[in-house]
Amino acid sequence: MTSSGATGVRPMPAAAGIGLRAPHVTRVLHEQPRIAWLEVHSENLFGAGGAMHVAIERIRVDYPLSLHGVGLSLGSADALDAGHLRRLAALVDRYEPELVSEHLCWGAIDGRHGNDLLPLPFTEEAVTLLVSRIGQVQDILRRELLVENVATYLRFRDGDYTEWDFVAEVVRRSGCGLLCDVNNIYVNGVNHDFDPLTYLRALPRKAVREIHLAGFTRKENLPVPLLIDSHSRRVDGKVWDLYAEAIAMFGPVPSLIEWDQDIPGLEVLMAEAAHAQEVLDARRVRAA
């Protein structure tokens, strides 16, 4: 049905990369710091031209690249935004990224957008919808799409699946890749009271193509513990532990540090990436 693994796509190195954000673009261009690979938000390249394209044209030469979308809204009950998909396809043609990803969520309905990663009910209806949409996207991009599990702050009463079975089912049936966000699994484990290891064990390990790591914040003064996937801090110790478990299960996988609010200096991000790299290297030593 889909053409995953299209020829000509270079493999992403199974190493630690960094999400490239505006404050660091100039430095990366001029200093070409040692970073294994970079990821950018696809929508930041939706403009026809300008500084960001000039930067990525140059960065593309020196670094493996991942395009990570936040606005396609795969899980909208009505339809995919054809214009959005066309722009994404044009970017994929232009930059030939090693990886292309989106989120397992929805963000718009009836043409109105919330510009947020909104939760889906874990129903058969949602699985069927996502499988069909992912197929549509993979057909248009003529390559494999990775889908990312999102952090959520509520659960719907109706559901046919647990979250982990929902994610696994969508990935299996659509034949797409999985971008496993370890922080989101930890955050959801706290927010919805489950063991994150149960989640990891349920995932189709051969489909895991990338891992995301980020920092969360804690909402205080609530009757229940609640974590927000804020991308505003260092990766939590508990999430590093879970990451090591994930790498033990999945093997060395391209891993990314994300930081989107209160963005620190590039050194801080590189130190976080170095930490992830140690975990990856340790797994290789053990495997050898």
């Binding site: 009950a77 929805w106 309905i109 009836d110 909104l118 009910p121 129903t123 719907f156």
Partner: peptide, 15 residues
């Protein structure tokens, strides 16, 4: 309109 469509309409209206 599907159950999911209905749910998403209500959710987005609240946002």
């Amino acid at each position: 309109v599907s159950a999911l469509h209905e749910l998403q309409r209500g959710f987005l209206a609240a946002l």
